[in-house]
Amino acid sequence: MTENGLKILVVDDESIVIRSCEIVLKGAGYHMEGALGGREAILKMEKERYDLVFTDLKMPEVDGITLIRWLRNSRPDTGIVILTGYPSQDTIKEALGLGIIDYVPKPFTPAVLLDVTRRAVQWLETRKPGAFAISAEMSSPAEPVRDDFPPAMAAELDKVIAHYKHIPGSLIPVLQRAQEMIGWLPVAALKRVSKGMNIPAAEVHSVVSFYSFFTMKPRGDHNIRVCLGTACYVKRAEEILRNLKEGLGIGVGEVTPDRKFSLEEVRCLGACGLAPVVVVDHDTFGGIDPKNSMEIVEKYR
């Protein structure tokens, strides 16, 4: 993927934004097109492939978040950068949750736009084509691992670090926020935390490896957690776990080759009244017959 072969789509309901992007990006040698709203963008992308999409959030009809959701589902390999005049914590958080690479606050200068574009392109390149289809053995260092995270998240993480930096004992809250944002704790994130908090990397790692909440492996799109509390155990949660392992073809702590599912066991969710319990993402399923374990998972295919 070279800069010249890369195709960018800028989506904004104001034509002046698209025009100025055109001047800057085309001037720098990028191939760029514009769309005056979410609907037009989707129509364009139905026909053609774009590698990177810059989108406004507040647009009539199909807004930015809706467009990002559509992209996530239908064009998961496309990189997304948001252009926004309203970088409120909530919208940024929502967009981060949907996996954007970065954001450009409006109004922006040509230098900022070029800088963000370069970073986004770099990010796309590090992931490489096919990076999404990592196999279950991704824990082995020989495999290509997404060992970085988007610049937008880095900026968010820095904010979190700055907030906690001078509060003693806040390593765990910082790591919790980092994992909440990224979904897991890549080595790069731990290094950033170590540097930012001025805590030795070894100590950061010692804390991460001690607590079961933290994970240094990426999770699948849907994380399946099987409760192994006593009440669930008594109601044969072990068999559910065995059936899921067999059905998905992965072990505990692993991710399916298509990265759709990851499987974890968890110590009591405190929902013993519903035992045995399986949680997929944020949905809780109770009173499961071990025989039907895979039926729950199939709903998320």
Binding site: L269, G270, A271, G273, L274, V277, T284, G286
Partner: peptide, 10 residues
């Protein structure tokens, strides 16, 4: 409506 974790899950 009783909305503890159990209730919500149910």
């Amino acid at each position: 409506v009783h909305m503890g974790t159990c209730g919500i899950a149910a």
